[in-house]
Every structure is written in structure tokens, then in C-alpha cells.
């Protein structure tokens, strides 16, 4: 999830633990995708693996920056300069997380929407990255973009489940749906910080479903 100050204080440590879980789950998916790519030697698997690689990288960055900030916040007697530095680090950590996560989602979108043309791929990357880069409301833009990309991916996963009718395809669909709903709640975060914790719980449930596909045979 995102750095502090968005959710309630009591959720801070759980937030970091959730991020570690998201990191491990996406790393497992990336590893599996890579092994499938080596087995089939097919471009689709490479695109899938690259997408999840960036998502894993985003969670790694977020976990490390959140952990650092959480440990720093335990210290007392901060000077104003130190507080400002922490805020800058928080902002930078979130910003990098957002860019990496969006790049990962765009790769998945390219795969699922079967985008072939290089120019269209470049356009998609440019649109999401510059939307975040040039926005004054980085977090809101990120939540909205993520929700939109997830929605398109969800439609394709729904079609996949309808075609295959397999339990694991349903689990992946439910998992992504839960993550999508979590992102939608984050868009409405201005209403109450409690939504952040609820979104975190939904995302956790989503990744548990996805992890389930890797461990259940």
C-alpha cells in the first residue's frame, strides 16, 4: 500500500507487513512467469513476467521506504529539517512506487488487450508515467489510473474464466477484483482514513487468492 499519513495510525505496522506479503506474492508470480517463459519461450510469458517484475519492484521499494520511515519515526526529538527530510523521503518513495506499479500494470494491459503496435505501447507508457509525473495530486491520479488499468485487466480475466472454467482462473479473477475494489476505495480516501485500512484488507485478500493459485494444485 502507500506510505503513512493516509491511513489511521494503528494501521501503520500492519501496512508494512501487508506490503511484505504483497512483495512475496508478486515475487512468486514473477518467478513462476519467468520459469514458464523459459519453458515455452513465448513472448507473452515474457510480457507477463516483466509486468509482475515491475509490480514486485514497486512493492520492494515501498516496503523498504516504509520500513525505514517507520523505524525513524520511533526516534524522538526530530528537528524541523529532519521532519522535512522524512516527508521528502516519503513522497519520493511513494512516487517511485507509483511509477513502477503503473509500468507493471501497463505491461499486463498490453498482454491482455493483445496490443501489438509498438507506438501504442509507447503511448500507454507515456500517458501513465507523465500523468503521475506532472500531476499536483500524485496520489489521487495514481489511484484513479490504477483502478482504470485494473478494470480493463479484470474484464479480460473474466473472459478467460468464462472460456476456461477453471478454479484457479476464478481465484485469479477474484484476486484481481478485490485489488481493484481496494483501489476504488482509495480514490474515495478523502472521505475517511478508515477506507485505507479497508482497502488494505481487500488487497490482502486479493493477493491471498492469487497466492492460492500457486500453492493449490
Amino acid at each position: 500500500m502507500v506510505v503513512t499519513a493516509l491511513g489511521p495510525d494503528w494501521f501503520l505496522e500492519a501496512d508494512v507487513l501487508f506490503d511484505v506479503f504483497f512483495l512475496l506474492t508478486t515475487a512468486l508470480v514473477t518467478t513462476m512467469g519467468w520459469r514458464a517463459y523459459k519453458f515455452f519461450d513465448e513472448e507473452r510469458y515474457k510480457t507477463f513476467t516483466t509486468g509482475f517484475f515491475f509490480i514486485t519492484g514497486s512493492y520492494l521499494l515501498l516496503t523498504l521506504s516504509n520500513l525505514f520511515i517507520m523505524l525513524e519515526l520511533r526516534e524522538a526529538d526530530y528537528s524541523l529539517r529532519e521532519v522535512v527530510s522524512l516527508i521528502n523521503l516519503t513522497t519520493m518513495g511513494f512516487f517511485l512506487y507509483a511509477v513502477l506499479f503503473l509500468i507493471g500494470l501497463v505491461y499486463l494491459l498490453i498482454l491482455y488487450m493483445k496490443v501489438e503496435q509498438r507506438a501504442v505501447k509507447l503511448l500507454l507508457f507515456a500517458l501513465v508515467i507523465f500523468s503521475v509525473l506532472l500531476s499536483h495530486q500524485v496520489k489521487s491520479v495514481f489511484f484513479v489510473l490504477t483502478a482504470m488499468l485494473l478494470l480493463f485487466i479484470l474484464v479480460q480475466l473474466g473472459a478467460n474464466y468464462r472460456a476456461k472454467r477453471k478454479r484457479n482462473a476464478l481465484l485469479v479473477l477474484i484476486g484481481f477484483a478485490a485489488v481493484f475494489v481496494g483501489e476504488v476505495l482509495l480514490v474515495a480516501l478523502f472521505l475517511t482514513p478508515m477506507l485505507y485500512a479497508i482497502a488494505g484488507g481487500l488487497t490482502l485478500f486479493g493477493y491471498l487468492c492469487i497466492l492460492g493459485t500457486l500453492v493449490i494444485r
Binding site: 507473452r44 510469458y45 473472459a159
Partner: peptide, 15 residues
Amino acid sequence: AKYRQFRDFSDAFGI
């Protein structure tokens, strides 16, 4: 065995 494993993974994620 590997083929089945990767096919299951592929089917689950719609690759």
C-alpha cells in the same frame, strides 16, 4: 509434469 504445471499457471492467469 512441468508442462501441466505451466499450462495450469497459464490458464489461471489468462496468458
